[in-house]
Amino acid sequence: MLELRLVQGSLLKKVLEAIKELVTDANFDCSATGFSLQAMDSSHVALVALLLRSEGFEHYRCDRNLSMGMNLNNVSKMLRCAGNDDIITLKADDGSDTVTFMFESPNQDKIADFEMKLMDIDSEHLGIPEAEYHAIVKMPSAEFARICKDLSSIGDTVVISVTKEGVKFSTRGDIGNANIVCRQNTTVDKPEEATIIEMQEPVSLTFALRYMNSFTKATPLSNTVTISLSSELPVVVEYKVADMGYIRFYLAPKIED
């Protein structure tokens, strides 16, 4: 028996909008720790890891570990029927091949349940060790989204370089090239507007902008984004999901041929 009640149901709606472009089908795993997902895009270049910790739910019942295969486009269709202020409850019986999404309006005057078929999904689970990163950039998520969008109108790849001067995003294409430098800036009115750069050593890596743009679909979840970089390692782009967890996107770098 599985029953997860999330008062801030809009978080789940935003999570689905954040990942459905990158991944088509995925297994949602439920355990005592929380509700999680790990899935790669079809080309195995990018990966999304989601964790919503059990403490973040108003009610969390998971009698035994359960993996539920879902088509994310179908989940998104279901969740779009929930109001932004609705409380969302996920329910599944042991051995059932369906999951039920229950939507309650805030004043309890409307209760809806949507039952969705589960599917069998063969997915490979990657073991991602905790790593020390050479550079960690924390910046406003809207700023990062704007940079990725702007650069993708010029080129296909972005070089992200972190030095003592700041973080530089560069691209080049047929019509020309572009460089955007963001300096550390902590003298702002609100903490979420700050750009904070923690650098152990300079790092410069190249990534496909198509994936970066896809990651920025998570922007509505958090005012800030954290970009962790190490030489010759995939970048980690992390958005917090309120105080209950995170979405992390991993993207393998490109190398000069």
Partner: peptide, 14 residues
């Protein structure tokens, strides 16, 4: 020209 690496070249499967 750039070559795209894949995640499996960095992380093992579980």
């Amino acid at each position: 020209n750039c070559l795209q690496w894949r995640l499996k070249e960095f992380y093992g499967t579980q």
